[in-house]
């Protein structure tokens, strides 16, 4: 009697409603973001034409005679750049994760783990600064280029930046693999290393896939660090040439595009394209995870 009265007292009800609203904010924000990005991204696409926008290969937004708004070079650069960063970063990340979770002496692992955390915490502009002051001049000298700012420089920076998230997610996945699997494999005569590579890693494949997807998301979404090393000309992607990603395309012109101009609206359209890319990766990831849950065990 007493209990039911306090439970439905006005203040209890008020708190319950308030907390419910808090819970809804995340959903509301997602809807708000989606709606706003679509609303602000569509006008320019309508004016330019979807085909010309997505498949045009010249970006010349402020030309007084013949402005062109083709973002194909940026789309391809983002895809190539992220793919190359993953090809370099993900294997190193996964091997490091296996090392930390299984093969490393516990003391050494305890020393390296906080270092990986630090690698994750370093702000992206700091990576950009180091890339700009070390990597870019080195690439210029070694490869004898007019300038070192290039897709290659951006790929290297991206590969470093996705390492920590790939490592920590796959390490968690590896550690969640039941001990019995490994014990069985060892008992059958496999060595420890064979067990890690042929039993533990395949058993943790969904977690490792999630790590790769997370890395892809980060690589596609990173802006400030690669803005400082990529050279930023909207060329078709080529490893040693200056390139512009979807993200850096927004970043470099955002401050300069006059409000209300088609150039600025087109930047929001690039934002919409980038958003769709990210959502696609998210959805693929959840499908992979779900499918894996189905056939697991």
């Amino acid at each position: 009697m007493n209990r039911s009265r306090t439970r439905s007292s006005p203040s209890e009800l008020a708190m319950r409603t308030l907390l419910f609203i808090c819970a809804l904010t995340a959903v509301i924000f997602v809807l708000l973001i989606t709606v706003y990005l679509i609303l602000s991204g569509l006008p320019a696409i309508q004016e330019i034409g979807l085909f010309n926008f997505l498949f045009g290969d010249i970006w010349q937004p402020t030309s007084s005679t013949d402005p062109k708004f083709g973002i194909l070079p940026m789309i391809l650069t983002s895809i190539y750049g992220a793919a190359a960063a993953i090809v370099i970063g993900v294997p190193i990340g996964i091997f490091t994760a296996i090392f930390l979770a299984k093969a490393a002496p516990p003391k050494l692992a305890a020393l390296i783990r906080p270092m990986i955390g630090l690698l994750a915490g370093i702000p992206s502009v700091v990576y950009g600064l180091v890339g700009m002051c070390v990597l870019v001049p080195c690439l210029r000298k070694w490869l004898d280029l007019p300038a070192g700012d290039s897709l290659l420089a951006a790929v290297i920076v991206l590969a470093v930046m996705i390492l920590p998230s790939v490592i920590s997610v796959s390490e968690t996945a590896l550690e969640a693999v039941p001990k019995e699997y490994e014990e069985a494999s060892l008992a059958l005569g496999a060595t420890e290393l064979e067990t890690y590579f042929r039993v533990t890693a395949p058993a943790a494949k969904s977690g490792i896939a999630a790590a790769a997807a997370l890395g892809t998301g980060r690589a596609i979404g990173e802006a400030m660090a690669i803005l400082m090393v990529a050279g930023n000309v909207a060329n078709m992607p080529s490893l040693l040439k200056s390139v512009r990603f979807l993200t850096t395309g927004i970043a470099i012109e955002m401050n300069y595009a006059a409000p209300g101009s088609l150039q600025r609206q087109a930047l929001f359209s690039i934002g919409l394209v980038l958003f769709l890319f990210i959502m696609l990766i998210n959805i693929l990831l959840s499908i992979v995870l779900k499918a894996d849950k189905g056939d697991n065990l």
Binding site: R218, G221, E222, F275, I278, I281
Partner: peptide, 8 residues
């Protein structure tokens, strides 16, 4: 929300 890049 966690996956949206900061430039967006």
């Amino acid at each position: 929300l966690a996956g949206i890049p900061s430039i967006l």
